[in-house]
Amino acid sequence: MSIELDAVSKSFGAVEAIRNVSLTIGQGEMFGLIGHNGAGKSTLFKLMLGLLPASAGAVRMNGVPTSSAQFRQVRRRIGYLPESFVSYDNLSGLEVLQLFADLKQVARAECGRVLRRVGLAHAASRRLHTYSKGMRQRLGFAQVLLGDPELIFLDEPTNGLDPEGIADFYGILHEAQGRGATIVITSHILADIQDRVDRLVILDAGKVAALGTLADLRSRQVLPSHIEVRLPPGGADKVGPALAHLAGVTIILDGEHATIACAAALKAQVVAALAPMLLDVSIREPSLEDLFLGYGGHHARAH
């Protein structure tokens, strides 16, 4: 299922939460939506889900406007996990899932399969008040998967999950994507999503600050690559002279280790110049968090 936002704005009184946002998300794409608190991520989610009307512009899914009567049928093919999944503590995990199955008009028989897929089969009969935060998050993800939705919205979905749980979560998402599902995901844990989304948008004060693949954003920001090297005794004195012919290179020496910051186009020349003296080398490209900060997301959390 594709999504199209055409010059969408949303105001709450005098506050303009979303400002003239235009973007298209293709079918089968895993799309990241990032921005600091107050950037407009949750508002944009609600606009795309049809939970809020746009003040200006249009939101369409597979060409169907979210403001139209026909959108009710489209909405049945959508799965959504809000940032905080809340349900009835006195119900068991299976009963909660059966409730969602009834709401979605999905056969209850599917609940057991979905609970197994998210690793909760052992806790199906336990009351929700005994669930940990991570287990509640898995249950919330389970209700998203009911009915094999064609479009999945996930708001901070890895809250409370341990590293194994996060890996399982993305494994399930890639299975859904393999079936053709479109996935829109927002996360503050930028390191988790940077190598998993196909494209992403960075929101800043309700506007699109950047849109594209991670490679696109790196090329536009022109942030330096960092080459970290380990040198033999006495090697540190040779680094400066070896790189003197390269302009715009910054060298930080720390005993037998050196970090060289340079433009991406110079990486090969730096490594070639230092090759005779290298004991070890690693290259760190700008992370999504580096890019986020560079595009104005100054309130990003460090993870």
Results as ranks from 00 to 15, higher is better:
Asp89Cys: 05
Asn90His: 13
Leu91Asn: 03
Ser92His: 06
Glu95Lys: 12
Glu95Asp: 14
Gln98Ala: 13
Gln98Trp: 07
Leu99Lys: 01
Asp102Tyr: 00
Leu103Met: 14
Lys104Trp: 05
Lys104Leu: 09
Gln105Phe: 01
Val106Asp: 01
Val106Ser: 03
Ala109Ile: 01
Glu110Leu: 06
Cys111Asn: 03
Gly112Leu: 13
Arg113Lys: 13
Arg113Ile: 09
Val114Met: 08
Leu120Asn: 04
Leu120Gly: 04
Leu120Asp: 07
His122Tyr: 09
His122Pro: 01
His122Ile: 08
Ala123His: 08
Ala124Thr: 07
Ala124Trp: 01
Leu128Val: 15
Leu128His: 03
Leu128Gln: 11
Leu128Pro: 04
His129Asn: 14
Thr130Glu: 12
Tyr131Ile: 07
Ser132Leu: 12
Ser132Asp: 12
Met135Thr: 04
Met135Arg: 02
Arg136Gly: 04
Arg136Gln: 12
Arg138Glu: 00
Arg138Ala: 00
Arg138His: 00
Leu139Phe: 02
Leu139Val: 01
Leu139Asp: 04
Leu139Met: 11
Gly140Pro: 00
Gly140Tyr: 03
Ala142Gly: 08
Gln143Tyr: 01
Gln143Ala: 06
Leu145Glu: 06
Leu145Arg: 03
Leu146Trp: 03
Leu146Phe: 03
Pro149Lys: 13
Pro149Gln: 14
Glu150Cys: 10
Leu154Trp: 10
Asp155His: 11
Glu156Phe: 06
Glu156Gln: 12
Asn159Phe: 00
Asp162Leu: 11
Glu164Trp: 00
Ile166Cys: 10
Ile166Trp: 01
Ala167Gln: 13
Ala167Pro: 00
